[in-house]
């Protein structure tokens, strides 16, 4: 009985998505009926073919993938390097710099929106990939995630590697980094998903449809075809499916990501 209740709640949670899929197959005429139909009367794929062209789908996916991919690589590399320095190297001023980094975490994104925009604009990077990507390449949160992971490594492995003749770089690249792989995958995945779904910054810094990322393109569709819900739903489905596929493929790592980051603070 309770288990049936679980199922009912689950279906209730998913219902809006099911409805999205359903509407995306409706013809425009079905908009006029009352009460609104739950299922398409005469299913059509016309909305999809129209949207693939309008978005333009391939270009939008490419843009989003470039943004998410570059940011993922950038954040993982810079976070791993900085986190390693914070966790395993001794140098004067370390504690002060850590405190300063924590202070940076308190700066909300909205404060940076205008100055970053003006800066990118004056560099002539508006509406380009560098403009879209460059500001996002470092994540302080990621640095602390990696620091936490590196702190967990036993001192003796480091000593053993030094005895084996590893220099500082091999120590980091060949020994420490492979040992924190769960944290690296978690960070990579979260960075990728975050950027895939980022909206405000791409909205501000890109103008042309050929630079639009997924959510910005979707918002354009929303304003351009304000009355045409089936169009909007088809575009939404088109742009959600890749995200779902990525999540499915990365499911295993998602779980480890939650394990790694579950207890740590996400700001």
């Amino acid at each position: 009985m309770r288990k049936v209740l679980l199922g009912v709640v689950a279906v209730g949670m998913v219902a809006p998505f099911l409805y999205m899929v359903s509407v995306s197959f409706m013809g425009e005429g079905e908009l006029l009926r009352w009460p609104p139909p739950l299922l398409p009367h005469a299913p059509t794929t016309g909305n999809y073919s129209a949207m693939v062209e309008v978005l333009p789908y391939a270009r939008v996916l490419l843009n989003t993938a470039i943004l998410a991919g570059c940011v993922m690589v950038g954040q993982v590399l810079t976070s791993a390097a900085a986190g390693y320095a914070f966790a395993r190297l001794r140098f004067p001023g370390r504690d002060g710099i850590i405190a300063a980094s924590l202070a940076i975490l308190t700066i909300p994104a909205i404060l940076l929106l205008v100055p970053r925009y003006l800066m990118i604009e004056s560099l002539g990077w508006a509406d380009t990939y560098p403009g879209l990507i460059s500001t996002e390449l470092v994540s302080v949160w990621g640095i602390f995630l990696m620091r936490q992971a590196f702190l967990m490594l036993p001192r003796e492995v480091e000593d053993a590697a030094r005895m084996d003749g590893a220099g500082e770089w091999s120590l980091f690249w060949r020994v420490a980094l492979p040992m924190v792989r769960p944290a690296v995958t978690a960070l990579a995945l979260l960075a990728f998903l975050d950027q895939w779904r980022s909206f405000l910054w791409p909205l501000v810094i890109t103008r042309s449809p050929r630079m639009a990322v997924a959510d910005v393109a979707l918002a354009h569709v929303h304003t351009t075809y304000a009355g045409n819900l089936p169009y909007q739903m088809a575009a939404a489905v088109l742009l959600t499916v890749p995200l779902l596929l990525i999540c499915l493929c990365a499911q295993r790592y998602m779980l480890s990501g939650v394990r790694v980051t579950g207890a740590s603070v996400r700001l």
């Binding site: 003796e156 492995v157 005895m163 040992m179």
Partner: peptide
């Protein structure tokens, strides 16, 4: 010089 530690410190990823 080579050193052997109290706990066998093998690199777990190799």
């Amino acid at each position: 010089v080579a050193m052997v530690f109290q706990t066998p410190t093998l690199y777990p990823h190799l």
